[in-house]
Amino acid sequence: MSGQCKFKNYIWELPLRWCHWINVMCIVVLSVTGFFIGTPFSFGRSASDFTIGWIRFIHFTAAYLFAVSVISRVLWSFIGNKYAGWKEFFPLATDKGRQKFIGMLRYYLLIDKDVPETVGHNPLATTAYIGLFCIYSIMILTGFALYAEHAPGSPMYRVFGFMYAMFSNQGMRLTHHFCMWLIVGFVINHIYSAWLMDIKEHGSEISSMFCGYKFTVKKED
């Protein structure tokens, strides 16, 4: 950490960090198991094996965990501290937010050399998270709709059945599959950006997601 960073701020509270790492784990598990469900290899040696059965079980369990985590994070944006709050996700709604957003964008586009310091979320990142949240919602809705497909009379189908009015059967599968790749693209961006800002800001961006503390030059106003 830079000698300039003299303030230690508690930014990410425990529930938020849990949500983050549960999401990470779920995305990895869901992507891998989901890929095998879409393109299953012949893992089974005998007909009494249950390999795809287990892969599907893990996928569905992780899907429930992921859905609970995402919903918890949304609820936390109304409960948690201001850094976790829902207002953070709409920087474009305020003048100050727009200013910060443009500053960050100019830095990312290699126009400015001044590394903007952010105490909580990066405004560019939170804007991307809104897109990501939409993708998560699509994944959860299409996923549970497909999960309910086998039992049209079930309570779950009654909840998610409206999805079948919006998607064709194959269109829903394609959407669910393709959004996985969009999340993969996001993950690459996310890891790179966290790494970059950790190096440039000297504020321990990456370790803040484990311990919750970020270091800044100035105290947050």
Binding site: S2, Q4, C5, K96, Q99, K100, G103, Y108, L110, K113, D114, V115, P116, E117, G185, I188, N189, Y192, L196, K200, E201, H202, G203, T216, V217, K218, D221
Partner: peptide, 27 residues
């Protein structure tokens, strides 16, 4: 995406950015 950020990372590694300090900090 990976290629774009690899290039971005390489360009970032080559240039000397100004670290955040009391003078440069926004707001």
């Amino acid at each position: 995406v990976a290629a774009a950020f690899a290039v971005h990372g390489a360009l970032n590694a080559l240039r000397k950015d100004k670290e955040p300090s009391d003078e440069t900090r926004e707001g």
